[in-house]
């Protein structure tokens, strides 16, 4: 155990406060009985949580976001597993270029991506469609998934696959029985991170949605540009609780530290 010095402790506390303060404010505001954003709230009321039920377009947007997140994260993960296996354990020409290509969406400003996707989807006639959105989100979240899966693959002993082969397993059996189970922490971690990123995405999405495919962040954004009632706070609180619940479940099953730090399953 490393003992932290006073300065390190102080820094950690300041950092935690800095990270958590906005959440505390949003959750606090959501319980206000008043019709405007107020912090600290003058009383405790569930008025704005009830208001969510009176605004079915928020619920629809939330369902849309979950569907979009699940579809994009799943597709991105399916793409990234073979990509990470090739990049992480293979030696071939163009390996670095391939890795750079997969990670490049991180380096392009999201506004630029948004405009590019808008043009592209219009050309393809997919603008505003669900699968058009899925496509764009996959591009945005692939770097996150790839990095986590790659961390798992890199930590994997290449002899393990060889051992299975020497015992008579076919390539597919080696993947299914040995490699995949060994990198599953990275795969699940990548999926969760990808889902949250997709669920949360605004900058690109705002360019390419139409009223039928509005996601929760876009809905919140457009709501806030028209009115400033605490409905956005209560919706955000529900979204925060949903994310925390998801994290808790994943932590129970796989251990978050292991997933997000990317330690192998040793």
């Amino acid at each position: 155990m490393i003992r932290n010095g006073l300065f390190a402790k102080l820094f950690s506390i300041v950092f935690a406060v800095f990270m958590l303060a906005p959440l505390v404010v949003v959750i606090g505001v959501s319980f206000t009985p008043e019709g405007f954003l107020e912090f600290p709230p003058s009383g405790i009321s569930l008025r704005w949580f009830r208001a969510i039920l009176d605004n079915p377009d928020f619920i629809e947007a939330a369902i849309m976001s979950v569907q979009l997140g699940v579809a994009s994260a799943t597709i991105a993960t399916v793409i990234c597993i073979p990509a990470a296996l090739a990049i992480g354990s293979g030696r071939f020409a163009g390996r670095d270029a391939l890795q750079a290509l997969f990670l490049s969406p991180l380096t392009v400003p999201t506004v630029v991506l948004g405009i590019a996707f808008l043009r592209f989807l219009s050309m393809m006639g997919l603008n505003g469609t669900f699968w058009g959105l899925v496509f764009c989100h996959v591009v945005i979240i692939v770097p996150f998934v790839l990095r986590l899966v790659l961390a798992s693959v890199t930590g994997l002993d290449p002899s393990i696959a060889r051992a299975a082969t020497s015992l008579g397993a076919s390539d597919w059996t080696v993947f299914r029985r040995i490699t995949l189970p060994a990198i599953i922490p990275g795969v699940v971690g990548g999926w969760v991170l990808a889902f949250i990123t997709s669920f949360d995405e605004l900058t690109v999405t705002v360019f390419i949605v139409n009223p039928a495919t509005t996601t929760l962040p876009v809905k919140l954004f457009s709501h806030i540009t028209q009115t400033t009632d605490p409905l956005v706070a209560s919706v955000s609180t529900v979204a925060i609780l949903f994310t925390v619940a998801l994290m808790l479940i994943v932590d129970r099953i796989y251990g978050l530290d292991r997933l997000l730090i990317g330690e192998g399953s040793r």
């Binding site: 002993d157 051992a163 082969t165 020497s166 015992l167 040995i178 399953s265």
Partner: peptide, 19 residues
């Protein structure tokens, strides 16, 4: 192919299946 040779191999890292 390697999988049909029927050899027993012990690797330096043991290469046990961790799961």
């Amino acid at each position: 192919p390697a999988r049909a040779r029927g050899l027993g191999i012990v690797f330096q890292t043991y290469a046990l299946f961790p799961h």
